[in-house]
Write a protein that binds this DNA or RNA. Structure first.
Length: 260
DNA sequence: ATGCCACCTTCAAGGTGA
C-alpha cells in the first residue's frame, strides 16, 4: 500500500490540482498539511467520492492537518500532547485497520520557527521536544507507526542546494537539527534514507526567486517509521512532477510503499 | 536590508510562510 505526505498550501485553492493527482497516484493513505480551513470547510464530498475516509483537524486561515484513508479510520485524536495553550492545528493521529492489522498514522505540520531569537523559534523547539516525547511514548506500543509530514528541518547539507543561504534560518539551526536527530534516535526509520538517500532530492521549492526552474529546493518532508512499519517498507518516491502542475503547491508529495 | 510569490481575511493591505 502507498502512504503519501503532502503540504498542500490550502486544500480549497488546490482542490482541482489535488483531485487530479489523487486520481492518478491513488495513495491508500494521505497525510495532508496546511489545509488552511476549518473542519466544516474541508472538501469532504470530493475525497469521499474517491473512496477516502477522512479525519480533519482544521483551523481558520493557517495550519490545519488531515488524514485521508481508504482503510477504515477506527479512531483519531487532534493535537500534540504536552501544552494545553497550543492552539495551532498541526498534529492529527489516527488508527486505521488494514488487512494485516492496525496501523497508527500521524500527519505533522512542524512549526517554521523563523525568525530565530524570537518566540516563534522557542515555540518550534518546544513543539519538537513535545513531538519527541510523544513519539517515544508511541514507540512503547511496538506497533506499526507512521509519522509523516512537513518537518521544516533541513537535516543534511545535501537537503538544500546551498547551505550558506540557510545558516541563519530556523530550518537549519543546530538546535533544530539536533532535535530531529533525537527523534530519529528514538528508533524511527526515515523512509527516504532507507530506500533512496540521494543528495539534492527536494520536496519544496519556494514560489519566489525562480526557485523551481533553478532547482533551488529543500528536502523537508519526511515519512518516519517505527521498526514494525519499517520492516514492511518496500520503496519510496518523491512526486516531483506535482510541482509542475497547474496551480501547484510549493511542496510535492513524498510517498512510501509498505507491504501491508 | 527588502521584496521577489502565493496564501489568508474580506476589499486593502498586512500577516504568514520557508
Amino acid at each position: 500500500m502507498k502512504i503519501a505526505s503532502w503540504n498542500v498550501n490550502s486544500v480549497r485553492t488546490r482542490l482541482p490540482t489535488l483531485l487530479q493527482w489523487f486520481e492518478q497516484a491513488r495513495p491508500d493513505i494521505a497525510c495532508l498539511q496546511e489545509i488552511k480551513c476549518q473542519d466544516e470547510q474541508f472538501p469532504r464530498d470530493e475525497f469521499e467520492a474517491l473512496g477516502y475516509n477522512i479525519a480533519v483537524h482544521g483551523q481558520k486561515s493557517y495550519n490545519g492537518v488531515a488524514i485521508l484513508s481508504k482503510y477504515p479510520i477506527e479512531e483519531y485524536t487532534c493535537g500534540l500532547p504536552g501544552d494545553p495553550d497550543d492552539d495551532h492545528a498541526r498534529y492529527i493521529e489516527a488508527v486505521v485497520s488494514t488487512d494485516t492489522g492496525p496501523l497508527r498514522v500521524a500527519s505533522i505540520y512542524l512549526p517554521n520557527g523563523n525568525p530565530k531569537d524570537t518566540p516563534k523559534f522557542d515555540y518550534k523547539l518546544d513543539w519538537m521536544h513535545r513531538l519527541n516525547a510523544h513519539a517515544q511514548s508511541l514507540m512503547t506500543f511496538e506497533e506499526k507507526l507512521v509519522l509523516a509530514g512537513d518537518y521544516n528541518v533541513i537535516f543534511r547539507d545535501e537537503d538544500c542546494w546551498d547551505p550558506a543561504v540557510w545558516t541563519e534560518d530556523a530550518l537549519y539551526a543546530k538546535e533544530v537539527r539536533d532535535a530531529f536527530a533525537a527523534l530519529m534516535w528514538s528508533g524511527l526509520t526515515d523512509a527516504y534514507m532507507a530506500k533512496d538517500g540521494r543528495a539534492h532530492q527536494y520536496t519544496f521549492w519556494d514560489y519566489q526567486r525562480g526557485a523551481w526552474p533553478k532547482g533551488h529546493g529543500i528536502h523537508i518532508d519526511h515519512i518516519l517509521l517505527s521498526p514494525q512499519a519499517a520492516d514492511t517498507l518496500t520503496g519510496v518516491e518523491i512526486a516531483k512532477d506535482a510541482r509542475a502542475m497547474e496551480k501547484p503547491s510549493d511542496h510535492v508529495p513524498i510517498i512510501a510503499e509498505l507491504d501491508i
